[in-house]
Design a protein around this nucleic acid. Sequence first.
DNA 1: GTCTATATCGGGATAGAC
DNA 2: GTCTATCCCGATATAGAC
Lengths: 202, 202
Amino acid sequence: MSEKDKTTEEKILEAARRIFVEKGMAGARMQQIADDAGINKSLLHYYYRSKDKLFLAVFRMAIRDFIPGIKGIIFSDISVYEKLDLFIKRYMDVLLSKPFVPMFILQEIQRDPERLFNVFLEAGIRPDYILKEFERSIDKGVIRGIDPKHLIINVLSLCIFPIAARPMMQRMFYANDPAAYQQFLNERKAVVSDFVINAIKP
Amino acid sequence: MSEKDKTTEEKILEAARRIFVEKGMAGARMQQIADDAGINKSLLHYYYRSKDKLFLAVFRMAIRDFIPGIKGIIFSDISVYEKLDLFIKRYMDVLLSKPFVPMFILQEIQRDPERLFNVFLEAGIRPDYILKEFERSIDKGVIRGIDPKHLIINVLSLCIFPIAARPMMQRMFYANDPAAYQQFLNERKAVVSDFVINAIKP
DNA sequence: GTCTATATCGGGATAGAC
DNA sequence: GTCTATCCCGATATAGAC
């Protein structure tokens, strides 16, 4: 689909996504979103009644993009180690294809965690199932005794943080070379998987 | 020092810190900072000429609070494992005593990474030394062959993320019980240290 | 140093023509 | 559906009295 064939609504959503991620909800300007989308400011209000509604639309879109690939893995019928490996790789793939999501969600976590929690619930994201599975694996001695909550948060940390903190890490470790850091993030899929698996092997 | 003995300037800085962390630079309101400090809005401008200057003051204070305990460890003369263990525990202690710092810095990373990088440089924060030390340890076979950059970023991720994402994690895993999550974070010092050390043992 | 009052401006939102 | 013009509130910032 060429740039011109995009509906106005699509152009708005994409522009809004860019600006909201860069500036956050409060820092974003409707004018800038309109400019970025190549349309008039009033049209934003025509399609979405308010800034808040536009933000929510972008937000839901981000969540939806983000989820489908993940849920399949969690409920699939493979070993814990395969599951962890697959999850980490798939999860990082999704994050790399939507690198704006981490900061977007972190900002929303501060702004209104309850609303975010409900969006997650709607999407069927709950830790219960995987928590139980880790517990069983620990009981069976398949993985080392670590509180499953810590394990989950470790995995999330290792995947999310390097993307959220990208501008600084890229500057510090790669003299601000985007291609080099991208390469680093690609390697990271295997590195994190190894790291976690080594850490929890009995 | 009682609440009353604090100078106006101190009261402003503390209030500003709270509000800036909660709302971010753009979302924060001078009025709210003034209310929170129990003073008049104009006084903010009397002490700090503008919102941006106030933000910068809070920011530098945050960095300064944050650094001293850390640097000592990096250059101390102990084994890599002891150093990692000590660093993780001390670093998380600092983060726990200044829990606003992670989001504050993450926001600033998006807003102006170059300025932040320079503030870090001023404070003497550079990854070179520890990077080299990890390399030597890998060459000697003391730790498993992992790209030292990944190792550093893993440690940072594991320490920082759970605090930055606290409101959501607390809601998901502890039914929003702050004391329970605080307890979780305290445990975490030892858990992360174990996790990392297990992951890199040859 | 601290307050009240006010200037000034930017930005979200709406009205209305086409 | 898309544009121009405009409203109006809220927020930063300043002036000036005490």
